[in-house]
Design a protein around this nucleic acid. Structure first.
Length: 422
RNA sequence: GUGGGCGAGGCCGAACGGUUAGGCACUGGAUUGUGAUUCCAGGUGUAGUGGGUUCAACUCCCAUCGUCCACCCCA
């Protein structure tokens, strides 16, 4: 079929059949972060382009070639946000939230002009958490425990936690120099991309997927060995906390993360179930970013998770949230059809939470029962001339092999209330 | 930006250089106030688009668009 009008490449409709799963993920995340006392923050989808240049790092691919940027009518360069942290820091600074510690979370669409592939889209959705003013390892640990709890709540088991420390700015600079020396000595054996990164972002050579490069990297000096006492202690506290809480993790000395603002703790939750885009949730500490964006120096750490990836994992695991209604109201005959909306309103008042579809478009019993069945409803609520005359209501299970029952309104509400709480 | 796979009805999908299987879904019917199972009937496609080869193209070739997967990068 010729589709003259269709969604933009890499931007997908989420259809009703999928929405129940999305809501399940969103609701679960909201419950979990709320249970840790985090407060939601909502920021615009559009920011001045300079914010992302300064926050993410001007030489990263995200800023260099993946942003949806355009000129506003007054000539300002604006961009659709490619990630949430920069906006969050900007908003917190702008409104003076950083005079005290903050635990914030956000959710929403992000935009990156990338070639779409499995688990990667041009418009995608993240839920993220950012904390400010907390320098100790307890908060690093809290974020990892929070995410671990979230996976348990969602029933996701095929995820592993990978952990590393990038050191502070000085440690990282010193290590970087050593790494460049080592890699330069083997430059001819590195793949082309890694040779380029040797000058732009040498740490990223560490997580190259190229086999030959990985062999060279295996012999490289490791970051963990170059940490100072304070950073090392911070890192060890996290590990000890995870051990004590029974959360398993793997040290991954090659985990470096893409964005420039990270320091010290970085972590990722990864799976093998999603093809090449296996990172479901990732984050780290960014103690320098607030100052970099013009504020006082405030320690910070956060993470973000990709909802498309989480939803895909859940769908693959066979998750099937119940989206069907409880009751389908069948009304046959002119008088019953006229009375039906009023009955439906009374019933919604009497049984909060009841999901009820009322028949529209008339039809005989056969016709309406067919629609009732197709709706997926548990029960057909029957209102015909007889019921109307007796002021009773017929209720028939569409899923169980049981007789239709005749109820008064009070009996009906009691029955449905009991059904909902069962 | 680079490389590869794939485009047939609402969805899935077999075969084949010579009138497009099948399945699901959908619509109607199988006596009067009752659905789902079963049976019968029905509609739905100028095979993404454009060009080429051929007596003949859904089938082969080219282009283009779309899509998927991978690289890059990243949630």
């Amino acid at each position: 079929m010729t589709k003259s009008l269709q969604a933009i490449r890499g931007m997908h409709d989420i259809l009703p059949a999928q929405v129940a799963l999305w809501q399940h993920v969103e609701d679960t995340v909201r419950e979990v972060v709320t249970s840790y006392g985090y407060a939601e923050i909502r920021t615009p989808l559009v920011e001045v382009t300079a914010l992302f240049h300064r926050a993410i790092g001007a030489v990263t691919d995200i800023v260099e070639k993946e942003m949806y940027s355009f000129d506003d009518r007054n000539g300002d360069s604006l961009s659709l946000r490619p990630e949430g942290t920069a906006s969050c820091v900007r908003a917190a600074l702008e409104h003076g939230l950083l005079i005290q510690p903050q635990r914030l979370w956000y959710r929403g669409a992000m935009f990156r002009y990338e070639r779409p592939q499995r688990g990667r889209y041009r418009q995608f959705h993240q839920i993220g958490v950012e904390t400010f003013g907390l320098a100790g390892a307890e908060i690093d640990l809290e974020l990892m425990l929070l995410t671990a709890r979230l996976w348990r709540r969602l029933g996701l088991t095929d995820l592993r936690l990978e952990l590393n420390s990038l050191g502070d700015a000085e440690e990282r600079a010193a290590y970087r120099a050593q790494l460049v020396t080592y890699l330069s000595a083997h430059a001819d054996q590195l793949d082309a991309d890694s040779q380029r990164r040797l000058t732009t972002n040498p740490l990223r050579v560490l997580d190259s997927k190229h086999p030959a490069t990985q062999e060279i990297v295996a012999g490289a000096p490791t970051l963990l060995a170059h940490l100072g006492a304070e950073t090392r202690s911070h890192f060890e506290q996290i590990c000890a906390g995870l051990d004590a809480a029974g959360v398993r993790y793997q040290l991954n000395p090659r985990l470096v993360r893409g964005l420039d603002y990270y320091n010290r703790t970085v972590f990722e939750w990864v799976t093998d179930a999603l093809g090449a885009q296996g990172t479901v949730c990732a984050g780290g500490r960014y103690d320098g970013l607030v100052a970099q964006l013009g504020g006082k120096s405030v320690p910070a750490i956060g993470f973000a998770m990709g909802l498309e990836r989480l939803v895909e994992m859940l769908a693959a695991a066979g998750a099937q949230p119940d989206a069907a209604v409880d009751v389908y109201l069948v009304a046959v005959g002119a008088a019953a059809q006229q009375a039906a909306p009023v009955v439906a309103e009374r019933l919604r008042d009497a049984v909060p939470g009841l999901r009820m579809l009322t028949n529209c478009g008339g039809g005989n019993f056969k016709n309406q029962f067919k629609k009732a069945d197709k709706s997926g409803a548990q029960f057909a609520l029957v209102l015909g001339e007889t019921e109307l005359a007796e002021n009773r209501f017929g209720l028939k299970s569409l899923r169980l092999d049981s007789e239709q029952q005749l109820f008064t309104f009070e009996e009906l509400t009691a029955f449905l209330t009991a059904h909902l709480t069962a």
